[in-house]
Deep mutational scan, measured.
Amino acid sequence: TTVHLNGVTYTFPNPEEARKFVEKLAKTLNLKVEVHNGTYHIE
């Protein structure tokens, strides 16, 4: 599972880890999250 954040790409072997990371980040920084083909894009 891949996460794109400010031009940096993070790869998680575990989709659940990626989801938790994204949710925590989005909540902390009040960001918008979009998912395209299983890839998270955070703005």
Rank of each mutant, 00 (worst) to 15 (best):
G7V: 03
K24I: 13
L5Q: 02
I42H: 02
H36A: 05
N37K: 04
P15N: 10
V35D: 03
L5R: 02
H4K: 12
K20F: 08
T1Q: 07
T11S: 10
E23Q: 08
E43A: 09
V22S: 03
H4F: 13
N14F: 06
I42K: 02
A18F: 04
A26M: 14
L31R: 02
L31E: 01
H36N: 06
T1W: 08
V8Y: 12
L25W: 08
F21D: 00
V22L: 04
N37F: 04
G38M: 03
T2L: 14
T9R: 13
V22E: 00
G38C: 14
G7N: 08
T1I: 07
T39V: 15
T2E: 12
L25P: 00
K24C: 15
E34S: 13
R19A: 07
E16V: 10
T11D: 06
E43H: 12
R19T: 05
E17W: 12
L31I: 14
T28A: 09
E17G: 08
K24E: 13
I42S: 03
N6A: 09
F21Q: 01
N37R: 03
K32R: 11
N14T: 10
T11F: 11
E16F: 11
L31V: 13
N30M: 06
N30Y: 06
T28C: 15
A18L: 04
E17N: 08
E16Q: 10
H41L: 09
R19M: 08
E43M: 14
A26C: 15
H41R: 04
A18Q: 01
N30C: 15
G38D: 05
E16L: 10
K32W: 05
T1N: 09
T1K: 08
V35A: 03
V22A: 13
Y10T: 02
I42V: 11
N6L: 12
G7R: 07
T1C: 15
L5S: 03
K27N: 09
K32F: 05
P15C: 14
V8C: 15
L5F: 15
E17S: 13
K24F: 15
V8M: 10
L5C: 14
L5V: 13
E17F: 10
Y10G: 00
F21T: 01
G7E: 05
K24Q: 12
A26Y: 04
L25K: 01
V8E: 07
F21K: 00
V8F: 12
E23K: 07
F12V: 00
E17K: 11
Y40L: 09
V8K: 12
F21Y: 05
K32G: 02
N6M: 13
N14A: 06
N6S: 08
Y10K: 03
T2N: 12
K24V: 13
F12Q: 00
A18H: 01
G38H: 05
N14L: 05
L31Y: 06
E16W: 11
H36L: 12
Y40H: 03
E17I: 12
P15I: 08
A18C: 14
P15F: 11
K24H: 13
R19V: 06
N6Q: 07
F12L: 03
T28V: 12
L31Q: 02
E23L: 11
T28P: 02
F12E: 00
V22W: 03
P13W: 09
T1M: 08
N6Y: 12
A26G: 07
Y40N: 02
V33A: 02
H41F: 15
P15W: 09
T2M: 14
T39P: 02
Y40D: 03
V22K: 01
F21P: 00
K32V: 07
L29A: 07
T9L: 13
E17A: 13
V35L: 12
P13S: 12
K27I: 08
G7A: 05
N30A: 07
I42A: 04
E23C: 15
T11V: 11
E34Q: 09
H4C: 15
N37V: 02
L25A: 03
E16A: 10
F12R: 00
Y10D: 00
N37L: 04
A18W: 03
V3S: 00
K24D: 13
N30P: 06
I42P: 03
V8N: 08
A26V: 12
G7D: 06
L5W: 15
P15G: 09
K24R: 13
K32S: 06
H36P: 01
T11R: 13
G7P: 01
E34W: 14
L5K: 02
K27P: 03
L29C: 15
Y10N: 01
T2V: 12
N37T: 02
E43K: 11
L25R: 01
E43W: 15
L5T: 03
T9P: 11
V35R: 02
K32L: 06
E17D: 11
V8R: 13
A26E: 07
T39R: 07
F21S: 00
E43P: 02
G38T: 02
L25Q: 01
L25G: 00
L29Y: 13
A26N: 06
R19P: 00
H4S: 08
L29M: 11
T28L: 14
N37M: 04
P13H: 09
N14P: 00
N37E: 07
Y40P: 03
A26K: 11
T2D: 11
V33Y: 08
V8I: 11
N14G: 10
L25D: 00
P15R: 08
F12A: 00
T39C: 15
N14W: 04
N37W: 03
H41N: 05
T11Q: 11
V3M: 04
V35F: 15
E34V: 14
N6T: 04
K27G: 10
V3W: 02
F12I: 01
A26P: 02
I42C: 12
V33T: 01
T9S: 10
A26R: 11
F12W: 03
V35C: 15
K32C: 14
T2S: 10
L29V: 05
K20H: 08
T11Y: 11
T9C: 15
V3E: 00
I42W: 03
E23M: 11
T11G: 05
K32H: 08
L31D: 01
K27C: 15
P13E: 10
N6C: 15
V22C: 14
E16H: 10
E23D: 08
A18M: 04
I42Q: 02
N14D: 10
L25F: 04
K20M: 11
V8A: 09
T9H: 07
N37D: 11
H4R: 13
N30S: 06
N30R: 05
K24Y: 15
H36I: 15
N37C: 15
Y40W: 13
E34H: 14
P15Y: 07
Y10L: 13
H36W: 09
A18N: 00
G7L: 05
N14C: 15
P13T: 11
Y40G: 02
T1Y: 06
T11H: 11
E23N: 07
T1S: 11
V33P: 01
N14M: 04
I42R: 01
H41M: 08
L5N: 02
V22F: 03
A18D: 00
E34I: 14
P15S: 10
N14Y: 06
T9D: 04
Y10M: 09
H36M: 09
R19Y: 08
V33M: 04
F21R: 00
T39E: 15
T28Y: 14
L29R: 04
E43C: 15
L5Y: 15
N6K: 08
N6G: 08
K20R: 12
V8Q: 10
F21N: 00
V33Q: 01
T11K: 11
A26Q: 12
P15V: 08
Y10A: 01
L31A: 09
E23V: 10
H41Y: 15
Y40F: 08
V3I: 05
E43Q: 12
V35T: 04
P13D: 09
E34R: 12
V3Y: 02
N30H: 10
G38A: 03
P13G: 09
F12M: 02
Y40Q: 03
E17C: 15
T28Q: 11
F12N: 00
T9M: 13
L25N: 01
K27E: 12
L29W: 07
H4T: 08
A26S: 11
T1V: 09
E34T: 15
N30G: 10
H41V: 13
E34M: 12
V35W: 12
K20W: 08
H36K: 13
T28G: 06
V22Q: 01
E43I: 15
H36F: 09
V35Y: 14
K20G: 06
V3K: 00
E23I: 10
T2I: 13
Y10I: 12
T2W: 12
Y40M: 07
H41G: 02
I42T: 03
H41A: 02
P15L: 09
N6P: 06
N6W: 14
K24W: 15
L25S: 01
H41C: 15
N6I: 07
G7K: 07
V35E: 05
E17T: 13
T2Q: 13
E23P: 00
G38V: 02
Y40C: 12
A26L: 13
R19C: 13
E43N: 10
I42Y: 03
R19G: 04
T39K: 06
G7S: 07
E16K: 08
L29G: 10
H41K: 04
F21I: 01
H36G: 03
V3T: 01
T9Q: 11
K20Y: 08
A26T: 09
V22G: 01
F21G: 00
T28W: 14
